[in-house]
Design a protein around this nucleic acid. Structure first.
Lengths: 224, 224
DNA sequence: TTGAAACTTAAACATTTCGTTAACAAATCT
DNA sequence: AGATTTGTTAACGAAATGTTTAAGTTTCAA
């Protein structure tokens, strides 16, 4: 689920945009000023994309975007503004925004452009799972503990990646087999047990998590 | 220097755009049809970004973009078209384009948007890959180790360039075939293995990297 | 057009790696 | 305690990969 921060001082428009985004599969959070937006961002909430107006009561959009960019080079920023002059567009793009839409915006087109930006941003960010000193990289299909690689076979990696993607969630042997053995449960379910032993052994030096047996059900990873 | 492919059947507009891009620090190549564009791309030239019209004599922009996306998920594509209807925009973004501008386009805004896309795509400004004593030049399609050329065929070069562009990232045989054999997987996937053997042999004197087999998945290049 | 060289690919065989099973030990539940 | 579930290990066999060869294909110059 992608989280989108909407910074727009027009209450009604803000509400309209957020509602529309929420109806279309995003989790939108509306802010009426840059100050509010800072609070939302650094209050622990992580966002995947920012939609921002330019003219706002406290800090303007340019300044807001610049500040954000200093801290985060990656997050896509889309300006949604009434200003249709080239100078504003230039200023915006120069501060590092990714798209610029002129009001009144077609909400459906906004959706399309948000989709394109998220797709693009996602390509760049690698699929990593970081838990303390442990890093699982889905592109490399390798695990690093404190920088040192732990060699894993394909199935081993798939299993541990799955478990760690949903900590505390219990997976039955059948679920795991269905997913990583192409639904071919002809090989006995006990094979999963063997893999758990292998994983426990390979990650014995890792204090970040633990593979826990749920008797009668299956296995789960629990973070320490 | 960024290279931009401009696909636009209106000769005059094509010329105008290319000239403007060239005057602003890019290296633009104009094509009057999708067919021409394919030739330009497959002819060994590497492009960093594509600007394309939708309505064209042979294959339309949607089809063109789709074909390009099948082979290359990364290259930014910008549509520049007279069509201002939502359906076209939707169709475009769904095929994976990154931006959509309605004619008549302001060339200065085009520049801004191209700049934003290139920044986002994080493309390095060169088609050279330098790793220690090893140099791969994508324009020349040649490899130099310590100044001495290592002769490579087109397929050999494509493969090693791809692997080294994403060190540690694992590529499946299918991925590589899809990309460098025009999606023609009729030739057995084992062909890839043969090429890996050849590459390992040709780069046996190279201590900068190593081609590593990921059993059950494919291959990756690991820097030493 | 023709021949030579370079390139590509299928096939065959050698080699390596991995997955599975089976057996027994240990733990857990009733 | 007895039954069931789970932990662990090692060995076998299957599958994936490495490599070479030879035959087919393309390219290019004469």
């Amino acid at each position: 689920m992608f989280r989108i921060l909407v910074v727009e001082d027009d209450k009604e428009l803000n509400r309209t945009v957020c509602t529309y985004l929420n109806q279309n599969g995003y989790e939108a959070v509306g802010c009426l000023s840059a100050g509010e937006a800072y609070d939302a961002m650094y209050g622990g909430s992580l966002f995947d994309l920012i939609v921002s107006d330019i003219m706002m009561p406290d800090v303007d959009g340019f300044e807001f975007a610049r500040t954000v960019r200093e801290q985060d080079q990656e997050i896509p920023i889309l300006f949604m503004t009434a200003r249709d002059d080239f100078a504003s567009k230039q200023k915006g793009f120069k501060t590092g925004i990714d798209d610029y839409m002129v009001k009144p915006v077609d909400l459906d087109e906004l959706l399309l452009r948000i989709g394109a930006l998220l797709r693009r941003a996602k390509i760049v960010s690698s699929h990593k799972l970081e838990i303390g000193k442990l890093v699982l990289d889905a592109d490399e299909r390798s695990a690093y503990l404190d920088g040192e690689e732990i060699p894993l076979t394909v199935r081993e990696f798939n299993l541990i990646y799955k478990l760690l993607s949903y900590p505390k969630k219990t997976f039955t042997r059948s679920q795991l087999m269905d997913e990583f053995w192409d639904g071919d449960t002809s090989s006995g379910l006990r094979t999963v047990d063997v893999y758990m032993t292998k994983l426990r052994s390979k990650f014995s030096g890792c204090e970040e998590f633990q593979i826990v047996t749920v008797h009668g059900l299956g296995y789960k990873a629990v973070l320490k």
